[in-house]
Structure formats: C-alpha cells, structure tokens
Design a protein around this nucleic acid. Structure first.
Length: 868
RNA sequence: GGGCGCGUAGCUCAGUGGGAGAGCGCUCGCUUCACACGCGAGAGGUCGGUGGUUCGAAACCACCCGUGCCCACCA
C-alpha cells in the first residue's frame, strides 16, 4: 500500500515497464488454437516494415487495435491479435546497401547469396525494434507467435499461390510497358507511382517530310525520346493533316523514315495536332504502336542512360543530359520552331523519389479482373463493411477499373519467383526441376504480393492448422486509407480465391494525424514525433512548441506515459484527418491521474477485508450504479462501431463528471465515517470502472487493480461480468435535480459574492428533495435548520426555490443584481416558449411529445419566475 | 478532367431536423483531510456565404467562396 499512499501523482514511467513484464509473462496474449473462428475474435496487424520504427500512425493504429483486442478479450472471447513484420523488399534492400556502401563494399561485390545473408543478419540485429516499441505501448498482440513475411512457412504459402495462379492462367510473363524506377533499378507497380507537378519546356520540333515539301511540327516535353520515334500520328478527322497521312517524315538527328499515321488518340487542339510516337518510352505511344504494328525501339536503358542503339554522340548520357544535347543539336539544324514553358504532372517513384522511366520490359504480370469480381461482390453485399462507409465506394471504384499488376521486381531481397528456364523451356513449381542446366528467374515478387496473404498465411495456410480454423476469417482490419488498394483489396481478392472466405468482415479506415501546422508528419520535414518521446519524455520538435510554457524545458515533452498517449490518440482520431494535439495527450494524462487519485481515496480508506459488491444505501448509490451501466453500454457501443474518439470522451466524462465530481463528493463523508456498505459499493464501482477503462488506458487500470482487495490475477485477463444493477430512471431523475440545484446555488453564491466557506441560512421550498436535502445543504453550503429570518433572495431550482435568509454573510446589493439577471434570463426563456407555442404551424404539425415538452418547459420557467 | 472530405468559441475538434458542446487557453474565487496535472463559478459563437425545403435548419437540398486528399495515359 505504501506506493499508493506515497504518490499523489500517477507516475507512468515507473509503473508501465513493470506492467509490461507482467502481461508478457502471463501468456494471456497467446490464446489456445481452439474453437472456431466464428466464436473467437481475431485481427491481423498491418505488418510494419522490418526496417520500421514506430511513428504516430503505428501508435494510433496500435491503440485502436489494442482497444478492440482488450475489449473483446474482456468480453470473454478467445482473442488473437496476429503480429509480425514485413520484409519490405525495396526499403530493406536499400537500407542494407547503404550500410555496405559505408563499409566500402556493395551488393554486386558480395553476390546474391552473401548479400541476402547480410540482410538476414541485419534483420536479426535491428529488425525487432518496432516489436519492442509495440510492447512498450501496451499492445496485447500475440508476441509469442510473431510472423515474418519471409519465414519458412510463409515462403511456401507464397510459392503455392504463385504456382496456382500461373496454372490458372492469371499470372503470365510479357514484354510490356512498365514503370521503371531508375533509383531502385526495378519495375514498380502503378500504385507505387506518384504524380508530381513539374514545370518543363514544351518544344515544337520540325520533322522534315521525305517528299522534301516542308515539314510536320510536333510538340514534345521529352525531346530525348525522339531517338526512339517510329511514327508520327495525327487525328483522322484533322483536315490540316489529312493529305499527309500515309506520307513519310524523316526523323531528325537519326534519319529514320517515320510513317505518318492516323489515330483517334491524338487531340487536334493540343500542340500542333501532330504527335511523335515513341512506343518504347511512352505508355500512350506503346498502345498506339500496338494498334498500328509499329516497332518498339529502346534508346533508354535500365540505368536511365541513352543506349548504344542511339546515335553515338548521345549514348551513355543520362536522360536529363540527353535532353539538353538533343535540343542543342536540333537548334543547330534550325528544327526547333518554338519552345514554351509547360506545367504538367510527371510520374515519380514513391520509393526512390526518382522520375519514372517508362520502358518496355519482360516482366511477370497478374491479371486482376477475374479475381476482382467476387471481391466486388462481398463489399456490395455487405459481407465486408468499410467504416466509415464511404471508403467502400472508393474501393469499388478502383476495383471496377482494375488493371493487370506487374509483380516482378529486380531485387534480391524477397520471395524469388519460383520459375526456372532452360533454353526455350519454362518450369513453374514450388521446387526446382530435375535435370541439368535450369536457371532460376532472378527476380523477386512485389512485397505486396506476399502481404496479400497475411491474414491466412500467418496462421499456417496452406496447411489446415488449428490456428487457421480458430482464427480465420479474422474479424476486423484497421488501417490507413493509403493502402486500401495496395493491401486491403488484394487481401480480399486472394483471401476469397484461396480460402473461399472473406479475410475479415470489417475494415476500419482510421484518420491520419497531421502535424499541428497541417503538414504531413514526417521525419525529414521535422514534423514527426517519435511516440516513445511522448511516452517517456524526449525531444519536442519546434513545430510542437507549447503555446504556453508548461515546464522547465519547452524543448522536451514531459513523460506522459503510454496510457495518456493512447487515450490522446484515440480522442484525436475521428472520421476525418486531424492535427496532432498535445493537449489531448495531456488530457489523457489528467484522466490517468484522476483515476489514480480517486482510487487512492477509496483504497486507502476501505478495510482490506472488504469485498466489492453493490449495496446501495442512498439514492446516489443507485444513481452511480445506473450511470455505470449507462457508461458500459455507451462505451461498448462506441468501440463496436469503431467510434474511438467518442469512446475516449465517454470514459473521460464518466470518470470526471459522474464518478469524481459528484459521486465521490456525495459519499466521501460516509466513507470517512467508516460505513461498511459504502466501502463495499465504492469498491464495486471502482472495480467496474477499471474494467470499463482498461481497453483504453490499460496500464494505470492494471496498476490500480493490483491494490484492490480481493482482486486476483490480472485485470487484462478479467472477463466482464453482468452488472449488478439495472438502469434506474427514478434515481437518475432525483440526482439530476440535485445536481442542477447545487449548480444553481453555487452560481448564485458566486455572483452574490458570498464567501466560499460561509454557510448560508436558507429555507428549502421545493418538491423532490426528500432524500437529498442533506446533500443539497452540504454541497451548496446551506444551513436549512434555521427557522424564521427575513427572506432576502430566492434561488430557483428544479421543483421550487431555495429562499435565502438574511445573515451577515450576505452583500444585499450583489444579491439583488444577481436576482435581476436571473429574472431577465427566465423572462426571455418564457417568451421564447410562448412564441413557439403561439405558432399555429408548430402546434399543428410538430410531434405531440415535442409540443408537450415545450409546454412543460414553459410551466417550469413560469413557476421559477413567479417564485422570484 | 472525375471523385471524396472539411469549413462550428482564441486554438484543436464533437454535434446530422426540436432550447449551440468538450478539452486547452482566458476571467473570478478557493492551501475544502484523493488529486493545484486539483476544486467551484464565469466570459466567449450572425455554426464560411447566398438561396431553398420545413411549423422548426449548425444539421437536409442547390449554387458560390475557401481548403485538403484520392483517382486519371492528353504530347
């Protein structure tokens, strides 16, 4: 007990690490693989990159998932939060390559086998950091069954899927236009490309006609690609060029003969209406080229440099250099008719940040339309629900226009494609083919290919494991919207294809937390916070400077503790993006501190032999039991509806407004007096409050629980029991009256400038206070025992008035001013009601209950006014 | 070009048809034996604008202004 007695402030920094150890040692995070998925509860974490460190998005999403997990676990269901990390192909490979560069070596020097070994070593040393951070946050995930998207069983699952889809004809190899990322030297998918606005120059270039009679002028922002031009296209309806269709132009600098063709794609009103066609280096031209059977030439290589197939003066130049050189050469020949500034969007690699080079390349693709169909149906039918709902529409829009997915990556770190080649033969299988001379495809799969199997591959699929039966399909998926297409959609498609079931029934799309200035939280911008710095205290970046000084060092966050951070993040989040608010974290800290101190009041006064039970002796006991039931129901509904900010605020309101401000103040005296039933009930209310609060603020509640007499085991493992009291509207009405009356009297005292400690002689002239008059007197500091005396003021309260009697405690002038103010307020209220009730439309059309409520209100206000 | 959000108190945000709310900040008062990271009482808003629907609009509809995001192959 000494700790509880000694600390009038809750100290998370000392408590939390100790609690983490108890939870981890208890084994409650790791459920038995028993029962069926329908009765059990499970959810899979979006696997953080193995290179990752905890950022605010992780902290928010983990707070959400842990709230769900703890809530369901305490609801008595076998609950599993599937945990693990993603091998994150490009990110991890880049990280290790950087390390090698520092050591003066390189991937190429090591060779594939040694390099991959190095990555595994790296993962062994540094890859677990985010997992430890999740533990520190209080995440109750299954740490004993941590998975990795490249561990042995997972590799088998991925290969199985690849082979099956290949055999079904959905995976194929093709020479096709891809987004080539010169930074990572790999193809990437459409989803990994981001468009940025760029100011370029639009050049008008003359292509002389072979006939020698003039030239056709084309407009281009990428003159360097002209080296691979194989045609010129115009719109078939364009009168200006009609007679040129079928003619031939001469490609400047190269001399190649280009056919002039007609294609509807060309817009007559843009540029000159004539378009140079480069099937090898532009996605649109690629399509046009296919339509017209044009050759695809390649003059830009995978290294982003001009190839030897181009005129030698350009070979080896980077594209940017080549552009300058080509323009200079054209100028020399007087072929640049015009040049103007041009703002447009250009694709960049999301990964490396480099400008995408569209290239024709031999890659593996996956056809998605067939897989999309059932995945569209399950969302349309409501089997899979998005929260907020509107994200379902976004999902469907994308799915209905889905395109093939380029799944091969020219990396070493990842799932190597299970395909072998020998001369013209191709072998696809989960094990190497027999015989000599087979060469395995060097490429690996897009990381998202393996992520798409996450909810079932982590449970042992394709084996029919007990885990799979117990926990698949999962229940919920909580994620940010930026991976709805990259990940969520693909999990639904592959889940349906390979397990025949939806991978989860609810997708919660949480908000994104921005920096206080509205920018994205990002380390490089200086707008990011390490959540651990909030939890344990640490550097406060300048954009997070407190508006008012709040401590010795504004450059440091105080150690708010994990509960405060979790509560704050939940309270901040909602359906829309929000700016990070340190105030909300501070509010969470106040909540933990309040609960700590309320518990001290109770636990330091009750006899250790007391056991929690509901033994209401006064109406306020019935009231708090009724409010407790209300809070449990409201909070439960909010969590089940994924409304976490509401849940957080409901908890705060219950603890502050109902439990501490009113109930504890009302029963304090009885507790001091040593009343046994009061102690018993208080212990019950406290225990159930801890149960209520635990999913949101697990640490402080677990710590307090350890001091509760008779409480055994861990609060985290406790199952919610049915509450011992029903809703009690009569008690709620009675206490509602009391609270309103006390507030009215306190307000009156304040404005009448009555000394706070003074007890005022008064007469209670109101109905409905038979059982609460003593409390009314105590809370409002009235002396109701006085008889006689001159009435000097009359304070309206529900059901009547309190008449204040003359005493030397009172400044009559101030009291009179207050009385006038109250009178004016009541009058305007009465007028508003009368006006409404005089409106024939209102009386005729409004619902009867609304009209009656209005009449009641008028009567009440009028009575209060009359009483003055 | 298409789509989806958002605009409510000084700040950050709840509130989706019947008397404008919370936290922080601000003002006044209080060393009341759980908590000064506290307690009590207040001030503060033409709910972006215009028009409409309705007995009644912060909420529903239309348009406008401002702002953010997503999707899209116009050189």
């Amino acid at each position: 007990m000494s700790e509880l007695e000694a600390r009038s402030r809750y100290t998370p920094a000392e408590v939390e690490p100790r609690i983490v150890e108890r939870w981890l040692a208890s084994g409650i995070y790791h459920p038995d693989a028993a029962g069926e998925a329908a009765e059990n509860y499970s959810l899979a974490i979006p696997p953080p990159n193995v290179t990752g460190v905890l950022h605010m998005g992780h902290a928010l999403n983990s707070s959400i998932q842990d709230c769900l997990t703890r809530y369901q676990r305490m609801g008595g269901r076998r609950t599993k939060w599937i945990l693990g990390t993603d091998h994150a192909g490009i990110a991890t490979q880049t990280q290790v390559e950087r390390l090698l560069a520092q050591e003066g070596t390189s991937r190429a020097a090591l060779g594939r086998e040694r390099f991959v070994e190095r990555v595994w070593e790296w993962r062994g040393s540094y890859g677990g950091r985010i997992i430890e951070q999740l533990e520190r946050l209080g995440a109750s995930a299954d740490f004993d069954a941590e998975r990795f998207t490249l561990d042995e069983g997972y590799v088998r699952a991925v290969q199985h899927v690849f082979v099956a889809l290949y055999e079904k004809g959905l995976i194929y190899r093709d020479r096709y236009m891809v987004n080539w990322d010169p930074g990572s030297r790999s193809a990437i998918s459409d989803l990994e490309v981001e468009d940025r606005e760029v100011t370029d120059t639009l050049y008008y270039v003359d292509y002389p006609l072979a006939s020698g009679s003039g030239a056709v002028t084309v407009a281009t922002v990428r003159p360097e690609t002209m080296l691979a031009d194989t045609a010129i296209a115009v719109n078939p309806g364009d009168e200006r060029y009609r007679r040129l269709v079928g003619e031939t132009a001469i490609l400047p600098l190269v001399g190649r003969r280009l056919k002039i063709i007609a294609d509807d794609y060309v817009r007559p009103d843009f540029g000159t209406g004539a378009l140079k066609i480069t099937p090898g280096h532009d996605p649109n031209d690629f399509e046009i080229g296919r339509r017209h059977g044009l050759p695809q030439l390649t003059t830009i290589g995978e290294d982003g440099r001009i190839t030897a197939d181009a005129p030698s003066r350009f070979a080896g130049l980077r594209t940017a250099e080549a552009r300058v050189a080509v323009v200079a050469a054209l100028r020399e020949q007087g072929l640049i008719a015009r040049a103007e500034e041009y703002v447009h969007t250009v694709p960049f690699s999301h990964r490396s940040g480099e400008r995408i080079e569209p290239l024709v390349s031999l890659q593996w693709f996956m056809r998605m339309d067939e897989l999309a169909r059932p995945a569209i149906d399950v969302v349309k039918s409501g089997q899979v629900r998005f929260h907020p709902q509107r994200w379902g529409r976004v999902y469907l829009d994308w799915m209905e226009n889905i395109r093939p997915w380029c799944i091969s990556r020219q990396l070493w770190w990842g799932h190597q494609i299970p395909v072998w080649y020998r001369d013209d033969e191709t072998y696809v299988g989960t094990t190497a083919p027999a015989g000599e001379g087979w060469e395995r495809d060097p490429d690996v799969l897009d990381t998202w290919f393996s992520s798409a199997l996450w909810p079932f591959a982590t449970l042992g699929w394709p084996e029919r494991t007990p885990e799979l039966r117990a926990f698949y399909p999962t229940d919920a998926l909580s994620t940010a919207r930026d991976i709805i297409f990259l990940w969520v959609a693909r999990m639904i498609m592959l889940g349906l294809e390979f397990t025949g079931e939806i991978p989860f029934s609810d997708v919660y799309v949480h908000s994104i937390i921005q920096a206080p200035d509205g920018r994205r939280m990002s380390k490089s911008l200086g707008t990011g916070i390490d959540p651990l710095d909030l939890i344990e205290g640490g550097a406060r970046p300048p954009v997070f400077a407190p508006v008012v000084g709040d401590g010795p060092d504004p450059g440091e966050f105080p150690a708010y503790g994990a509960d405060a951070v979790r509560w704050g993040l939940l309270a901040m989040s909602s359906g829309q993006d929000v700016r990070f608010s340190e105030d909300k974290v501070a509010q969470g800290q106040q909540l933990t501190n309040k609960l700590w101190n309320a518990s001290r009041l109770i636990l330091l006064r009750v006899d250790p032999a007391t056991r929690a039970a509901a033994r209401p002796v006064a109406v306020e006991d019935r009231w708090i039991l009724s409010r407790l039931r209300h809070a449990r129901e409201a909070l439960g509904a909010s969590i089940e509806h994924y409304d976490f900010s509401r849940a957080a605020l409901e908890l705060y309101d219950f603890v502050f407004s109902e439990l501490c401000d009113w109930y504890l103040e009302l029963v304090k005296q009885r507790l001091y007096d040593g009343d046994g039933d009061t102690a018993t009930t208080l212990l019950y209310v406290l225990t159930e409050t801890l149960v209520l609060a635990h999913p949101l603020i697990p640490f402080v509640t677990e710590e307090i629980y350890s001091y509760v007499p008779g409480a055994e085991g861990l609060l985290a493992a406790r199952v919610r029991e049915p509450l011992l009291a029903e809703a009690d509207p009569a008690a709620e009405a009675e206490l509602g009256r009391l609270i309103e009356a006390v507030q009215a009297l306190r307000g009156w005292r304040n404005s009448a400038e009555v000394r706070p400690g003074a007890s005022l002689p008064a007469r209670l002239n109101a109905d409905g206070y038979e059982r609460t008059a003593v409390q009314l007197a105590r809370q409002a500091r009235l002396d109701l025992s006085a008889n006689g005396g001159t009435a000097v003021a009359s304070v309206p309260i529900p059901g009547g008035v309190v008449v204040i009697l003359a005493s030397d405690q009172l400044d009559l002038g101030a009291a009179e001013r207050k009385r006038e103010a109250v009178r004016a307020e009541l009058r305007s209220g009465v007028e508003r009601c009368e006006r409404k009730l005089a409106n024939p439309g209102f009386v005729a059309k409004a619902p009867a209950a609304v009209i009656q409520a209005e009449r009641d209100k008028l009567a009440r206000l009028q009575a209060e006014l009359d009483a003055l």
